[in-house]
Design a protein around this nucleic acid. Structure first.
Lengths: 196, 196
DNA sequence: AATATAAATGAATATTCATTCATTTATATT
DNA sequence: AATATAAATGAATGAATATTCATTTATATT
């Protein structure tokens, strides 16, 4: 029997991500994707059941890659500053390695796929994050606070810088470019906010 | 001559916002909008040149309302903590008064309209924000830092809490609900991060 | 009351959309 | 080499899309 062309499958996946990042989910269609890959649209329906399946399978696969990258060399028993620094390093590295994925995930997060997307691969990841926060609260390294407040202080500045960097321009005049120095300067401010 | 029905124009605007928030830009169409308003789709083309015009005009109008709400009782010569507190209060109040708009703007920000949307009404607003930051740096109230870092620390935690609140659920088990206490507790942490 | 004019409409258009299907093609197994 | 089988395709489907247009309707002005 004929064997499935793995390169073609990969091409479909990468092209889908690129198109969704460029035009948004609203500008994305199966016919456009097939044309961009120079294959028949019917082939897409061999790989995926339908449009939703395509988007969610890709999101799930890439989400798993991301979640694993996030917790590399991290464990929830680490001391506060050390552990948080490790997570920042991982997120930053992921942004450098997969520059499209932050926009891609943001597209999904602000779409009707939101629920299925978040419910999927994030569960285990969230458990690890929650464990870490409880440990550092129990050890008295940071104040008691709701998880949402912790997350908003500990990570949203980082995600915001990554977004500014992706957009290449920002509030000020010159285009913003992320650097190691800026990253770790921001990290120090975040630690200052959270540390008792 | 016949006069334009202002109520109908308002109905179109509010319904468009509600539909976009509910289904996303990808699920939004002119025919659906007309049906939801119980008017002819051709009427939409009397009010707006085309679909893009409709979306961008609504975004621009509502963006102006938001930008004004943000700088109410604020001026860039205020002391750091006092001025930032005022901005937080304004943003929180806006979220309470217009609960749909944060999701609406996020839809636009993550779409192909991003550029035209950001370029529009934000210019004056950004100038005021930049002035405030420069003042508090010049007075030595906060460290020297790029505008993007300042913004990421000063506001992204707030926006994140608002988003968690909108989504009604979050990383933890129970649905997250924003309260005054949580808001100002988070604010204190942000001030701690920025204050010299 | 008659008129002029823009608002509002219903029905149509061409285009794009997701999806299907009969057919052809490549290859692993016999 | 022949066969079986899934991969891959081109062309088609009907539904939904944005937009247009000839016509009707309401009202401000005469």
């Amino acid at each position: 029997m004929r064997i499935r062309n793995i390169d073609k499958v990969q091409l479909v996946k990468q092209t889908a991500i690129a198109l969704i990042v460029k035009d948004g989910l609203e500008g994305f269609s199966m016919n456009k994707l097939a044309k961009a890959c120079s294959i028949s649209v019917a082939t897409l329906y061999i790989y995926y059941k339908d449009r939703d399946d395509l988007i969610l399978k890709i999101a799930h696969e890439e989400g798993t890659v991301m979640a694993e990258a996030m917790i590399k060399d991290f464990n929830p028993d680490m001391p506060f500053e050390y552990g948080l620094r490790r997570q920042w390093k991982n997120r930053y590295q992921y942004m450098v390695d997969y520059p499209l994925m932050n926009s891609f995930f943001e597209q999904l997060r602000t779409s009707s796929y939101q629920e299925e997307f978040l419910a999927g691969f994030l569960t285990e990841f969230k458990v690890t994050m929650g464990k870490f926060m409880h440990n550092i609260i129990n050890r008295g390294e940071i104040e008691v606070m709701p998880f949402e407040v912790y997350w908003s202080i500990a990570f949203s500045p980082l995600y915001n810088l990554i977004r500014f960097d992706n957009e290449g321009q920002s509030m000020g005049g010159m285009p913003f470019k992320m650097t190691d120095e800026i990253l770790w300067k921001t990290f120090d401010l975040v630690v200052k906010a959270l540390k008792k």
